[in-house]
Structure formats: structure tokens, C-alpha cells
């Protein structure tokens, strides 16, 4: 019995220590936002990598999800003669939930993994140590630009994802389900409220922060060798996905609880 309690205690302590390290890492990253030197070129590069080059995956994810959502709502709504709500539910579903969450998860898959692998490889090959010896703070040079870029660009990606998702629903609705195009769009616009859009963009910013931060954190704390890089990459994506889903629940609760 004592042994079981000891192992539970050790696991709890280890988890709390890991949480503490992560919080310190996050606070350290944010604190560099206000202390020069800054690296605008690195920020620009990260904006391009995380933002512009993620557009295809965001667009494809959103359009197929919007289309499938329209089909599901139509089929489900038909059970109680509510087929006409497809535009409204697609809009609210995409903007409030599916847009930010799916874009967040796709960014976790695409960006978190690549950031973690890149920084972990830099660590394994002593490039991080080299940065320090060249009087350059790794958090300032590597972490801050990526985290800031992801936080700034994710609301834009989510906004684009929302629009493309709604357009996916529109295409299915008008081409497959027989909706009138103008009416579909009018219903969408009429039904969406500013809070829906605001929540979507705020979620995007939070998810971007989480996705990039997890990549940087696990990369910087990677173990040695190829196995260390692989483990850092895997853990970063898993943790980013879990934190995105958990924070999505909390944000939804905060924005829309009655």
C-alpha cells in the first residue's frame, strides 16, 4: 500500500515539476517580448512559414469539413423537418468550433512537429550551444519569433478557414442539396453574431500560442540523438493537441456559458 502511494506521489510530483518547468518556459518566452534585442527577420520568416505556407492545408481541411457538415446537418435535420437550418448551423459550427479547432489541430500537426524537430535537431547538434556562445539568447532568437508569429497569424488562418468552411457548406448546399445561393449566404450572414467571430479569432490566437510554444518547449528540452528528436516531436504534437482541445472547452465555456 505504501509503495502504491509512493509511486502515485512520485508521479504527481513529477507532473507538477513538469508543469512548473513549462509555465516558467512560457513566462520566460513572454518576458522576452519586452526586452531587446529583437529579431524582426526571424519573425518575418516565421510568419511566412507558419502563416502563408499553412494556407493550403487550412483551406483543404476547412472546405471538406464545411461540406461534410452541411451533408450531416441536412441528413440529421431531415429527421425532424429542419433541413432549412443547414446554412445557420454550418456557419455557427464552423465559426465557433470546427474552424478554430481543426485549424489549431492542423497547425499542431504541421507547425508544432516541424518546430520541435528543428529545434531538437539544433540542440542535438550543439547549434543551441553555438547560439549562446555567439551572444544570442536561444529563447529570443528561436522561441519568441515562432510563438509570436503563430499567435499573430493563427487568427488570420482561422478566419480564412471559417470562410472557406462556410463556402464548402455553401457549395454542397447549393450544388447537392438544392439550396438557393443568395438565400444561403443571407441566412449565414444574418445568423452569425460578432461574438461568434470574436471567439473564433481569440481561440485562434490561443491555439497558435499553444502550438508554437509546445514545439519550442519540447525541442529545447529534447533528449539526445535521433530518438530524442523523435520523442520530442511526438510529445510536442500530442501535448499541443490535448492543450488545444482542453483550452477550446474552457474558452467555449468562457464565451458562451449562459
Amino acid at each position: 500500500m505504501t509503495r502504491i502511494l509512493a509511486s502515485i506521489g512520485a508521479a504527481v510530483l513529477s507532473s507538477l515539476a513538469a508543469l512548473g518547468r513549462f509555465v516558467l518556459f512560457a513566462l520566460g518566452t513572454v518576458s522576452h517580448l519586452f526586452r531587446p534585442p529583437f529579431y524582426p527577420k526571424e519573425l518575418g520568416h516565421s510568419l511566412l512559414q507558419i502563416g502563408y505556407f499553412s494556407l493550403p492545408v487550412v483551406g483543404l481541411t476547412a472546405i471538406f469539413t464545411g461540406g461534410a457538415l452541411a451533408l450531416q446537418i441536412y441528413a440529421g435535420g431531415a429527421r425532424f423537418n429542419a433541413e432549412a437550418v443547414v446554412p445557420q448551423i454550418v456557419a455557427i459550427g464552423m465559426v465557433r468550433e470546427l474552424g478554430p479547432v481543426l485549424v489549431g489541430l492542423m497547425i499542431a500537426a504541421r507547425v508544432t512537429s516541424s518546430v520541435a524537430a528543428e529545434i531538437a535537431t539544433m540542440k542535438v547538434t550543439e547549434q543551441i550551444d553555438a547560439l549562446v556562445t555567439l551572444s544570442t539568447h536561444p529563447m529570443k532568437y528561436l522561441t519568441l519569433p515562432r510563438v509570436l508569429a503563430a499567435t499573430l497569424v493563427m487568427p488570420v488562418l482561422v478566419g480564412i478557414g471559417d470562410i472557406i468552411g462556410i463556402m464548402g457548406g455553401y457549395l454542397v448546399g447549393t450544388q447537392r442539396l438544392g439550396f438557393n445561393g443568395a438565400t444561403y449566404l443571407q441566412n449565414t450572414i444574418d445568423f452569425l453574431e460578432p461574438l461568434d467571430v470574436t471567439s473564433s479569432l481569440v481561440k485562434g490566437a490561443v491555439f497558435g500560442f499553444i502550438a508554437a510554444l509546445m514545439g519550442c518547449y519540447y525541442g529545447m528540452n529534447s533528449g539526445r540523438g535521433a530518438m530524442g528528436v523523435g520523442r520530442a516531436t511526438k510529445n510536442s504534437v500530442v501535448m499541443a493537441a490535448i492543450l488545444i482541445l482542453a483550452s477550446n472547452f474552457l474558452l467555449t465555456e468562457a464565451f458562451f456559458s449562459a
Partner: peptide, 10 residues
């Protein structure tokens, strides 16, 4: 200045 074992070039 430091020369690292593996070069550690960026």
C-alpha cells in the same frame, strides 16, 4: 570563440 566538435553550423 568556440569551434564545436560537429561544427554546429546553422
Amino acid at each position: 570563440g568556440m569551434l564545436f566538435q560537429g561544427g554546429a553550423l546553422f
